[in-house]
């Protein structure tokens, strides 16, 4: 386990001043989105995010690097921007009951499992059910099978992920935080699926 991607750059102080904090400005062109990460500990939730945040090489991007809260803005082809505010959660069993505090009000939930661990896949399904019961009704959910680089140790078939996601109306993707495979695609796909505020 562990992230093989490089460490976050500690010097990248936050440039976003008060403007970005202004009452959660989200207009049709610039969305600000709360994204919550759920999944067993050790599946690589944090690594996916670090890879995503570090993988963007736009030096002007306003990146906040904490150890557990990160944000990243991406530009879409239709010239809209989406700022993801990524809320990590603690994956250990003993903190499971605290998750609602984190996913309350989230527009996106990314549920992560490890393709080499059937237990983590079962846990992912638990989170999906939780979110269906207690999350916002219009929450966008993604199911992510991480550690795709460890294909030789795979224990959760791709098809199982696809089937489960389809049944539950989720977007599905397999990623590797280690090789950065599909990491950007994951967030771009999520961005496309976000409900847009009416551009009046």
């Amino acid at each position: 386990m562990g992230c093989s991607s490089s460490l976050p750059d500690r010097s990248s102080g936050q440039l976003a001043g008060l403007n970005s904090e202004n009452g959660g400005v989200s207009d049709a062109k610039n969305l600000r989105v709360k994204l919550v990460l759920l999944g067993d500990s050790g599946v690589g939730k944090s690594c996916i995010v670090l890879r995503f945040v570090r993988g963007q090489f736009d030096p002007t991007s306003k990146v906040t690097v904490g150890a557990s809260f990160l944000s990243q803005t991406i530009a879409l082809q239709d010239s809209t921007t989406v700022k993801f505010e990524i809320w990590d959660t603690a994956g250990q069993e003993r903190y499971a009951a605290l998750a609602p505090l984190y996913y309350r009000g989230a527009a996106v939930a990314v549920v992560v499992y490890d393709i080499t661990s059937p237990d983590s896949f079962a846990k992912a399904q638990y989170w999906v059910k939780e979110l269906q019961k207690h999350g916002s009704p219009d929450i966008v959910m993604a199911l992510v099978g991480n550690k795709a680089d460890l294909n030789e140790k795979r224990e959760v078939p791709v098809q199982d992920g696809i089937d489960y996601a389809e049944k539950n109306g989720m977007f599905f993707i397999e990623t590797s935080a280690k090789t950065a495979d599909n990491i950007n695609q994951l967030f771009e796909e999520i961005a496309k699926r976000l409900p847009r505020p009416a551009s009046s």
Partner: peptide, 18 residues
Amino acid sequence: LLNASMSENHALAGLDDF
């Protein structure tokens, strides 16, 4: 957490550690 990840090579585990 960041220091541990740099000097001790402890993988950043986000909120699991925090």
